[in-house]
């Protein structure tokens, strides 16, 4: 069962639309318990880091997520803020993140850089991986964010994009996958990525 975690801060409908279009069935998990029988989890998210962590904690998601993702090793895909919540901390707020991957979230920093980084950008695959093929020609995705993740271990970086400088566009560590862009809003490029994740 594919579960999309719905803790009130993501664009759930766009994701379900795409998952269904690809030909899979997704369950919108409104409460943490719905994740217990999931075989794939998508963790979406839009908005501020602290607000996202507060929602996860207030509604009792954190323990269940830790159990399913860190102990039972169910594949999970974090999207945008969902990816950032997987990290240890964020410059955007004071809350601790889920801490599933050795990474932190920092603000885009550069003179004359327009922030948010909003729009379509192409990505470069850094490490061979099952989600993003490296021989597909130019792949572009829709981004919309002011903060980005920084991994301790460069081998966790799947792909980078450039906005002033190269930053992590996708990472993974074991069963944990995160993408900074919005595959559900990236036409066939995003469709391919989501399909590959669901077929893992």
């Amino acid at each position: 069962m594919i579960a999309i975690a719905s803790f009130g801060i993501g664009n759930i409908l766009s994701l379900t639309n795409m998952v269904r279009y690809i030909g899979f069935d997704a369950v919108v998990a409104d409460k943490p318990g719905d994740l217990l029988c999931a075989t794939k989890i998508i963790l979406p998210g839009v908005g501020a880091f602290d607000y996202g962590m507060k929602r996860l904690s207030d509604l009792g998601w954190i323990d269940v997520l830790n159990e399913v993702v860190m102990q039972r090793r169910v594949p999970v895909l974090g999207i945008c803020l969902g990816m950032q919540l997987m990290c240890r901390s964020s410059q955007e707020g004071n809350s601790k993140g889920l801490g599933w991957i050795a990474a932190d979230v920092v603000r885009f920093d550069g003179a004359g850089l327009r922030v948010p980084h909003m729009g379509w950008n192409s990505i470069e695959v850094s490490n061979p991986n099952p989600l993003i093929s490296s021989n597909y020609g130019e792949q572009r995705f829709y981004f919309c964010h002011s903060y980005h993740t920084v991994c301790d271990d460069p081998s966790d970086i799947l792909a980078t994009a450039r906005h002033g400088y190269d930053f992590t566009a996708a990472f993974s560590c074991n069963n944990i996958y995160g993408v900074q862009f919005h595959p559900e809003k990236s036409h066939r490029f995003g469709m391919s990525l989501i399909k590959k994740f669901l077929e893992l």
Binding site: L13, S14, N17, M18, Y21, Y142, C144, H182, E184, K185, S186, H187, G190, M191
Partner: peptide
Amino acid sequence: IERFAGECFMP
């Protein structure tokens, strides 16, 4: 608007 969103795999 909900129908629009259902047709859009773009922002």
